[in-house]
Design a protein around this nucleic acid. Structure first.
Lengths: 188, 188
DNA sequence: TGACGTGATGACAGTGACTGACATGACGTT
DNA sequence: AACGTCATGTCAGTCACTGTCATCACGTCA
């Protein structure tokens, strides 16, 4: 029998989300999360750099989907690369994940520190996309604007996807939002 | 002679920026800032909600310029409202402010917590713009995309404005970036 | 089989951000 | 001159986060 149960990292994340959802982010201490997972506070910080970070595990995988989408496309047109990245990332948001995403988002929306962390993650995604676009010989300034537009479309789509009553698949919503953005900025 | 010197808030902000710039954000304690301003740590937190916030005083005024720009325009076209907001806000970034903005940005760029706070302020600006646009009978989804696009243009412009060697006025840079964004998303 | 290294964890003390509660004392008003 | 107000000081406390050392199950190698 192992001295330590395996999956400490996952247990910590699960305990954290459950406690945050039931009693709030600020009124849950790290020591409490750790105890709930059968560990100590010190061990929590060996897995997660800080308290907000425990809600953002798996971010790298998510960001990788966008980048894979860019790599898959052979185009050098910003719009086509954006669409490819968005389409590819949509796979992450399967319908089974919708309920989980909703409850997680309630927690994030309810705390400023978590909102800030989420924005920072989105900013990191935009940076990565900027680099990926720039490797296709796209002007750096254009690449940055395209990357931020991509993230905007994703965020709007995600918000719509978890809205009450919404049932369309993520990919469908996202294509609609991208069209809206194009229409908005079309020279009239 | 007054028991307390006036302008405590401003002295705290000035001490903070100076200390952050010379020895870094993290290695400067709030107690140190307060002492430098002739006050105590407790008083610092009566003026600023937390340590990052001391670098973001005056944010309301800045946000107000964007909103004034929207109000000044009588248009109901998103693109025209965006342009009006951006043009109006450009007044905030006079050439005299460029050197100060550069040194402040060095501090912000050098610390993750400050970057997160800055992103959150930009997000708040986007929310305000979304509401302002929505009051012009613009579809909420379009309003949100237009607001985020506005903020993207501003941020890209600001980055260019403080770049080494750059000397064009802020308004000129910003108009160029807005044109680039339009060109990027123009249906081909 | 037993010594040994490795790696995950615990234990503990310390720093610093932030808060609540109460005390102080200069100032204007009456 | 008594009084209320308000910016500030003082102090104790909580909690996020860190450095350091101890512990102990496990695999390996002699």
């Amino acid at each position: 029998m192992a001295r330590w149960q395996s999956g400490s990292r996952e247990r910590l994340a699960a305990s954290a989300l459950r406690l945050f959802a039931s009693q709030g982010f600020e009124s849950t201490t790290v020591a409490e999360i750790a105890a709930d997972a059968g560990l100590t506070e010190r061990t929590f910080f060996r897995y997660y750099a800080d308290k907000p970070e425990v809600l953002f595990a798996g971010q790298d995988e998510f960001e990788g989907l966008f980048l894979d989408g860019v790599e898959e496309s052979t185009s050098t047109q910003p719009m086509e690369l954006m669409a490819s990245a968005l389409d590819h990332a949509a796979a992450f948001f399967a319908d089974e994940r919708r309920a989980w995403s909703r409850s997680r988002q309630v927690v994030v929306t309810g705390n400023v520190a978590l909102q800030e962390r989420e924005l920072h993650k989105m900013s990191g995604l935009a940076s990565s996309l900027t680099s990926a676009f720039a490797e296709r010989d796209i002007d750096p300034n254009i690449a940055a604007l395209a990357a931020e537009a991509t993230v905007s479309v994703f965020r709007r789509s995600f918000a719509a996807w978890i809205a009450a009553g919404e049932s369309r698949p993520f990919a469908d919503i996202q294509r609609g939002v991208l069209s809206q953005l194009q229409a908005l900025l079309a020279p009239s």
